[in-house]
């Protein structure tokens, strides 16, 4: 797996390694408890269907956390300064989702990097898009 350990190793246009995060019911339920965000549409498929969803859905704030973890694996010596995510569509619990990212800007003067981010649902829909800004230390 590609890891960026120093600012000088980042190139404009670099892709982050694609990841398929765990959004199993057990994992999402753990997240909901840690977030005090326990709603049936996140942790019960049948209850979510009654609300009109195809199945239980991944909380938007968890999808943002999944992207942050992906960034930390790619650049473990960086710090996220900001992360901005737009929730475009549902990501289903117990499904296969894919996270991607790419470097869109590099600022040598501040040793910071900007990324575009996305999460794609199992059926190919874009569930989340976003951006992040990272700071590297000298």
């Amino acid at each position: 797996m590609v890891k960026i350990l120093k600012f000088d190793e980042v190139e404009l246009g670099d892709d982050l390694p694609t990841e398929t995060p765990d959004v199993s019911m057990a994992r999402v339920t753990n997240f909901c408890h840690s977030a005090k965000h326990v709603f049936e549409r996140f942790i019960d498929h049948e209850a979510a269907k009654k609300e009109g969803f195809p199945a239980a859905i991944v909380p938007g704030i968890m999808s943002q956390g999944l992207l942050a973890a992906m960034i930390h694996r790619w650049a473990p010596n960086s710090s996220i300064q900001s992360i901005d995510t737009v929730f475009r569509g549902s990501l289903l619990v117990d499904s296969h989702i894919t996270m991607t990212g790419a470097v869109t800007d590099i600022d040598d003067s501040t040793m910071s990097v900007e990324l575009d981010l996305a999460i794609t649902a199992e059926d190919g829909r874009t569930g989340v898009i976003g951006t992040a800004k990272l700071q590297f230390s000298a």
């Binding site: 995060p21 765990d22 994992r27 999402v28 753990n30 997240f31 408890h33 840690s34 977030a35 005090k36 968890m62 956390g65 999944l66 942050a68 973890a69 992906m70 930390h72 694996r73 473990p76």
Partner: peptide
Amino acid sequence: DDMIAWAEACGETDPRF
């Protein structure tokens, strides 16, 4: 405990979190 549970549920592997 909540900080660690949140990070782990997000698949975080960086020990800072």
